[in-house]
Design a binder for these strands. Structure first.
Lengths: 203, 203
DNA sequence: CCTACCGATCGGTAGG
DNA sequence: CCTACCGATCGGTAGG
């Protein structure tokens, strides 16, 4: 008697299945897919079945790799901030001049925010969509990330009339919102970062 | 036999019911409730049953006043932009100097965006949450609104190195995102508007 | 404006 | 990783 290949009865196999059979690599694949979908459609707009479809499995099967949708989102969010913090630290490591450091940080964060094929995608916003129980955790984590910018802004020789706390909030919300209007092919993330730094440069 | 008062069996009556019995006023009440909830919880995060609860009725009963959730959101969105456009036009009407006009427009838009008790609330963002069929309509409507700012930015004596299109996008995303981090009691919307105008002032 | 319901979809699970 | 399902919730409707 013939034995059917598992999953061969699915209507189509557009999703990327696990080729190598390495479960760690498979998990990474799933996280990357989920990150992209969360970034594009938001937390509520992305169902586990959606993620499963892109991964080539049914939604329920994802729970072999993750504990819950909440936990998946938290892991992605924290991982994204870790990577972002590292890359920003690298970008400003060689620079001493406060404005240079700010510009380098803006460029680095934008390159992350605007890269459509990264596990490190913009999900630092839209906390309204996320369930209450994990919301505060995400906010606290982001606040720690933003302390990097607090330190950089404090070093700037700003005019006395500027409120540094407000200045920092404005700069960060600008960087975080960039993904909402950015369209690839026109300005590069670097160019945008430089323009932002130029606009925010006052002494 | 005694006759029960309608709705008296509901667990609680926290919701505001229609007191006067005026159906037009009742509809306005419902729109205002919906606007607040959409602004706070997003489109997907607000169910018709949620809105009904705050209005003191069941979700299904709202359909006597509106056609669909989509139509409700579109009406609120377009109405908000109408009011915002009017108030900005008023704010800049008396001013001639380009920087003064920009500052006045920023203040006016922020006062609208940051007012928590207004039918004119910030729902110009988060189009990811909205169903595909109405998304493009909302975007087109917002683009028309943003033309006001395009005109104002074109009048500014900016340095030649500045990209005016990028500059406008950055300014608008800053104004639109203000509701995400704003907390009442510290800076007023006017003060924030003035600081934004100061940061964006370069010649 | 309520009762009572529809079909669809959600996150998640037991068992294989 | 699938089958087959759970309870909950969604937008919306018919009829009163």
């Amino acid at each position: 008697m013939e034995r059917l290949v598992r999953g061969a009865h699915l209507k189509d196999r557009k999703g990327m299945r696990n080729a190598g059979g390495n479960p760690r690599e498979r998990r990474r694949q799933i996280l990357e897919i989920a990150a992209q979908m969360f970034a594009r459609k938001g937390y509520r707009g992305t169902s586990m079945r959606d993620i499963g479809e892109k991964a080539g499995v049914l939604g329920g099967s994802l729970y072999h790799h993750i504990k819950s949708k909440d936990a998946l989102f938290v892991e992605l969010h924290n991982g994204a901030l870790d990577v972002a913090a590292d890359r920003i630290a690298q970008a400003i490591a060689g620079k001493r001049e406060p404005w240079d450091r700010l510009e380098a940080a803006c460029e680095a964060l934008l390159e992350i925010q605007l890269d459509p094929d990264s596990l490190t995608l913009p999900m630092m916003n839209d906390f309204r969509e996320v369930p209450e129980p994990i919301r505060q955790e995400l906010i606290d984590r982001r606040d720690r990330f933003e302390d990097m910018f607090r330190a950089m802004v404090d070093e700037l020789p700003l005019p006395a009339s500027f409120d540094r706390s407000l200045y920092r909030n404005l700069l960060l919300s600008l960087l975080n919102a960039a993904g909402d209007w950015y369209r690839p092919g026109r300005r590069t993330p670097r160019e945008i970062g430089r323009q932002i730094a130029a606009i925010f440069r006052h002494e």
